[in-house]
Design a protein around this nucleic acid. Structure first.
Length: 912
DNA sequence: ATATTCACG
DNA sequence: ACGTACGTGAATATA
């Protein structure tokens, strides 16, 4: 989780940087970043050598960092500063400065000259200055940039540079690796140290620095220094107010080390007046020199990077419009009712876009459309034309192949116009997702750019974003963009199909994802009827209960406050009422359920807060939330299944999310009474797979004991309990044992760790470890699987499901323990969760076909990961009771049987 | 926009 | 020594 969070934080900061309209100056501390880069991939030192035996790990990691930073910052000017040599003006002041440092490893220093070549390829200047350190070059250049109105971004691995942070200068510190970056603004420095940036040098003065080998004041560390500086502002301030400090050992040390403190502060101070021979005018950044880079990558044996560049033809994947080559002009013809016969030129294939500006294609307006075959491009704002006989025939003619971006959205949009989309061959969105679930931007332009096609911009670039987003009134602008998008689809068709073939994913695309997209479209269009009276009645009831709970809570607290605010609630519980703090979040006290449950016995208010929370969740998310999205004309909700989002191959559901409707508590479960059939005399029918993920686990691992349990149709958690507790019969399994075995089973599926299991079960870590060890002893092939799959991920860089769905795990070799372990757990979990997703997808396609073939009225409405929900006339229920399970359990043939359970009733609630 | 919480599989 | 269960979406508060 942590790694995800930090990714998000980084992404956010990057965006902030990009958002600023100021000119940007990027300054990189070459030596420091190279050092970090070298150690980030130190474990892989041996793997990273080129044909000449040159180590390349630092160059590789530096390149990765550079891509990231350049993309985030999009600089107008850039410079990488290097240290010039061992002696500087600082060694003149203090001969031991940076003394005692172990010298740079040969494996790194041999890479330094090539780093310069890399930078030349990137079009970024390098600079060094005798007697001065890289820091001083950066400090000087930063101030020069500030004076000229630039936003300055400094990249380094050295925290001392945070002293340079100002309103105009952000210091980006590379973390453990080099691709994780923490951005220090003055506010963030304050947060982190409780000091202003300029006080960093005072802190260094007091504490000294072991790595740079200069002394501070004896026994004064970061904590003491911060305390002193908060009180006295600076080193000088401390000494002016020595009298205010009580007699103590510390005071003696301060007095004794006065000179050292002043000297150290001086050494730590980055100069902003270095006599540079290079200035802002000399360091314009105009993007990379592709040919040079390709040659360089070839020399380094960076085959992937080289290929990327060659595929891209001209542009580097920096997502940077300014660095990519200019757009060539496109020609298009505006289609009108008078030149509709131009349509007849499309005889074999056509790339098509019906442009819908809103995300929600069930409701979006239609802005226009475009059709192209690469020779002729037709555009129009008049969507009525789509309903003309010519176009309708084209769309409904399966012999003319359609290339699109998001076939489901196109199918639904056209359906709303009374046109059926038939013959889709290439869906750029879907194919991109299968090729790499990681970069699943939903924007045609950015996906096309990622695949090396640069003749198209992102929607954001053309339409704007946020409140300013709008389809341009200018025909030329709008039609150009539409045309370029359609041409991008047209052009990427063949190449991406080739890539699918290379990945053995053609079958997954042709026989699963593409057909599924239309099954999903039909489900979305069908929608689910909602009994709004049921919901409004519940709303009234809940409203009363909530306000009475609220009063009770206020009374118990002795004041009114916002119960929904974790901050205010934390103050009441942990400050006013002095309840023990069990867990903290990074912003304050945690008040989550598990914390509150532990506190419940200590104060009655806690129980009421829990009740309030539960009720208000139901009220806002499910009652009010659902009512908001019921379509008024048909009384139904039409969710959208996102088919290209999850990293595992699962679907997700939005607007509304119908995959997380409550079921666990009685109170919540009542919500399901509002989901009813859309016709009288119909019922809701539901079938779900029993323990699919564990069955998939049994299949994939081939573990004989696990497989036996499923072949015997045992209660799997009881069987596991019997095994890990060494019992002879299931009769001896107590409920507690079963619960613990169940948690262990889940843990295995999630990529187990003893810590996670201990947290979940509330047991000690050694105990959890004991469970896991026993589990692995009883199911030895499961153990082998967990090891093999991680090994495979390390070797190939990705893991696969039973249908060759692929997930890349770039962090599997990360230096950061966190990232690496997260990737390892993911490696274990993804093939299981993903294969289960594959199975139900296959079942859905077969199911839809079976319903049509048999002319049944029954309609598939929902998929909830391991469950399918239908509505059907009562007479068809007996048919479904046989048909649905038989299709679901034979969707794929595994080494063990699949099991399906069904239920039906007058509402979703009753289908239990 | 991010963090927290909580609903589901 | 590190500090975690896997995959999602929505509402709310807070900045």
């Amino acid at each position: 989780m942590e790694s995800l969070k930090s990714k998000k934080a980084t992404a956010f900061m990057s965006e902030q940087l990009t958002l600023s309209t100021k000119k940007k100056l990027l300054l990189i501390d070459g030596n420091s970043v190279a050092f970090r880069a070298f150690f980030a991939l130190h474990q892989q030192l041996d793997r990273f050598t080129n044909h000449d035996g040159l180590h390349t790990n630092a160059i590789y990691a530096f390149k990765t960092m550079l891509d990231k930073v350049v993309k985030a910052v999009q600089p107008d000017k850039a410079l990488v500063a290097f240290d010039a040599g061992k002696t500087t003006f600082r060694t003149g002041k203090f001969s031991d400065y940076k003394g005692g440092r172990s010298k740079t490893p040969e494996e790194l220093s041999e890479q330094m000259p090539y780093l310069r070549d890399l930078l030349t390829g990137y079009g970024i200047k390098s600079y060094e200055l005798k007697d001065w350190e890289a820091d001083d070059i950066i400090g000087t250049m930063a101030r020069e940039g500030e004076a000229d109105g630039y936003q300055v971004i400094i990249v380094t691995g050295d925290r001392d540079l945070t002293q340079l942070a100002t309103d105009q200068t952000t210091v980006a510190i590379t973390q453990k690796g080099v691709s994780e970056i923490e951005y220090y603004t003055p506010a963030h420095v304050q947060d982190k140290y409780g000091l202003e940036p300029k006080q960093i040098i005072d802190m260094k003065g007091l504490t000294g620095d072991t790595s740079d080998n200069y002394p501070g004041v004896t026994k004064v560390g970061e904590k003491t220094a911060i305390k002193l500086l908060t009180q006295f502002d600076s080193v000088e301030g401390v000494y002016e107010h020595l009298d205010d400090i009580k007699q103590s050992k510390m005071k003696d040390h301060l007095i004794e080390d006065h000179d050292q403190a002043l000297m150290s502060k001086d050494l730590a101070t980055i100069r902003t007046n270095a006599p540079l021979a290079i200035h802002l005018d000399d360091i314009d950044y105009n993007g990379p020199d592709i040919d040079k880079l390709i040659a360089f990558y070839q020399q380094m044996d960076f085959n992937n990077f080289q290929k990327q560049l060659q595929n891209a033809g001209l542009s580097l994947d920096l997502g940077d419009d300014e660095t990519s080559t200019a757009l060539k002009t496109v020609s298009w013809t505006e289609l009108t009712k008078d030149n509709l016969n131009l349509i007849d030129n499309f005889t074999d294939e056509v790339s098509f876009i019906l442009e819908m500006p809103d995300e929600n294609y069930h409701l979006s307006a239609f802005a226009g459309f475009v059709m192209t075959d690469g020779k002729q491009t037709l555009v129009s704002r008049e969507v009525d034309l789509l309903q003309s006989a010519q176009i309708k025939n084209l769309m409904e003619n399966g012999n003319i192949e359609k290339n699109v971006f998001n076939a489901k959205a196109q199918y639904v949009g056209l359906h709303r116009l009374g046109v059926k989309l038939v013959g889709v061959d290439f869906d750029l969105l879907l194919v991109s997702y299968l090729l790499d679930t990681n970069d699943n931007s939903n924007d045609l332009g950015s996906l096309a750019q990622q695949h090396g096609y640069d003749q198209v911009e992102t929607d954001e670039a053309v339409y704007g974003k946020g409140a300013k987003r709008a389809i341009p009134d200018d025909d030329e602008q709008f039609f150009d963009h539409l045309s370029r998008k359609a041409l991008a689809i047209q052009n990427l068709h063949e190449e991406l199909f080739k890539e699918l073939d290379q990945n053995e994913q053609r079958d997954l695309y042709v026989n699963i994802e593409l057909p599924l997209t239309f099954v999903l479209a039909d489900m979305e269009i069908a929608g689910v009827y909602v009994d709004t009276d049921q919901l409004t009645n519940m709303r009234e009831k809940f409203k009363e209960q909530l306000s009475s709970l609220k009063q009770t809570i206020y009374n118990e607290a002795g004041e009114e406050f916002n119960i929904n605010s974790t901050k205010q609630l934390g103050q009441i519980l942990f400050e006013k009422m002095k309840l023990p703090v069990i867990k903290k979040t990074k912003t304050g006290y945690s008040t989550s359920v598990d914390v509150l449950e532990q506190l419940a016995s200590q104060a009655p208010i806690v129980e009421n807060i829990l009740a309030y929370r539960g009720l208000s969740k139901l009220q806002s998310t499910y009652i009010e939330g659902l009512l908001k999205v019921v379509h008024s004309h048909d009384h139904k909700v039409h969710t959208r299944y996102l088919q290209t989002l999850t990293q595992t191959g699962r679907l997700s559901s939005v607007d509304p999310n119908l995959q997380n409707i409550p079921i666990q508590t009685q109170q919540g479960r009542e919500i399901r009474k509002a989901f009813v059939p859309s016709h009288d005399g119909w019922e809701i029918f539901s079938s779900d797979y029993s323990q699919v993920e564990l069955r998939v686990l049994a299949h994939i691992t081939g573990d004989a004991n696990l497989q036996e349990a499923f072949r015997e149709d045992e209660d799997i958690h009881a069987a596991t309990a019997r095994r890990i507790f060494g019992l002879t019969s299931n009769d001896e399994v107590t409920p507690l044992m079963r619960r613990q075995a169940k948690a262990t089973n889940f843990g295995i599926v999630y990529g187990i760790s003893d810590y996670g299991l201990s947290q979940n079960l509330g047991i000690s870590r050694p105990q959890a470890k004991q469970f896991i060890d026993t589990y692995f002893r009883e199911y030895p092939d499961v153990k082998k699987y967990t090891e093999d799959v991680v090994e495979q991920a390390k070797k190939q860089g990705y893991v696969e499901t039973i249908t060759h769905r692929r997930r890349y795990l770039p962090d599997i070799n990360a230096k950061s323990f966190n990232r690496r372990s997260f990737a390892a757990r993911t490696a274990m979990n993804t093939p299981i969760q993903g294969s289960a997703a594959d199975i139900i997808k296959i079942a859905m396609i077969q199911m839809q076909k079976a319903l049509t073939d048999r002319d049944l009225k029954a309609t598939m409405l929902l998929q909830i990961h391991d469950e399918l929900v239908f509505e059907a006339p009562k007479e068809e229920i007996p048919i479904l009771e046989k048909l649905v399970p038989s299709i679901m359990d034979s969707a794929v043939s595994l080494d063990i049987p699949l099991k399906v359970e069904s239920a039906h009733g007058s509402t979703w609630y009753d289908a239990k």
